[in-house]
Design a binder for these strands. Structure first.
Ligand code: MN
Ligand code: MN
Ligand code: ZN
Ligand code: ZN
Lengths: 138, 138
DNA sequence: GATTAAATGCAAATCATTTGCAGAAAGGAT
DNA sequence: ATCCTTTCTGCAAATGATTTGCATTTAATC
């Protein structure tokens, strides 16, 4: 089954209407496969001059509320969005801005933190910052 | 030695002038001891009506550049700042906004990540989100 | 195809943050 | 203590990102 159809069904499951604007946004996020700023998503939607930036924002916010999209903030890039699929974290090059997805190193840590603090844990987010091999050699 | 004097010396060591505005900002961050938004810092500076919000921003940015202050972004709070002292991470209650400092669970992980990716690691940041015991019982 | 709630386009508003410039203050030298 | 140079601040205005109100359009249901 195509990825886009999977996402259309996720919308239907949450009673969110499948609009062409929503699909266009999800298509960009699927194709790029890295976290993108709202403005970048907007810029990558070609041949839809009537699709407005405010629509991009409204949809991203809705999808974040429905836990279909993750909203992040990266040093140097500001607020970015990615489709919420498998749990993973990010490694960001401070020179070229490259973003690498990495396995989350804290798979089992929330239980320990719960025992230590009494907090009910829901989520965590990690950013690693460094310089990628390509940038190091230049 | 008083904490404030330590910070004045940190400024001198970096050739940053010790101005009364800078001191006022650092005093707020020292006293509150949790990450604060620029606007919150500004609001907590009493009896200095001439001290402007733009000055708060300019100084926070300078202190971030000089690695004396850490700039973070917390879900629900936006951009916040804290004095950079010991390496630690944060646990945030999504109900009441309470922020707890916690020991960093990734003390030795950067080496492993370097070996896996070739990246030169400089820094990392973790946020844990949950609900605190007080909010859970209410 | 008609009905209704939800979504969009559009323009304007809001909020956070930055900037230009003229005057004030800090730190070093005399 | 005064002078000098550079940095810093106040102030007001600009910018950039994000949100909002409202009239119109559209998706989903019947
Ligand atoms: Mn990712
Ligand atoms: Mn802290
Ligand atoms: Zn790079
Ligand atoms: Zn709480």
């Amino acid at each position: 089954m195509q990825k886009l159809l999977v996402w259309e069904n996720k919308l239907r499951d949450k009673n969110i209407r499948v609009t062409s604007q929503r699909i266009a946004i999800i298509e960009v996020l699927l194709k790029e496969a890295i976290p993108l700023a709202a403005g970048d998503i907007f810029a990558k939607i070609k041949n839809r001059p009537e699709l407005k930036l405010s629509t991009v924002y409204r949809n991203l916010n809705l999808l974040v509320d429905e836990r279909l999209v993750r909203k992040l903030n990266f040093k140097g890039k500001g607020t970015v969005f990615e489709l919420l699929e498998d749990h993973h974290q990010h490694l960001i090059c401070l020179e070229c801005g490259d973003v690498k997805s990495i396995q989350c190193p804290l798979q089992n840590y929330e239980e320990e933190l719960h025992n230590d603090t009494g907090y009910e844990l829901y989520d965590h987010n990690i950013e690693f910052y460094g310089v990628c091999p390509a940038c190091k050699n230049s």
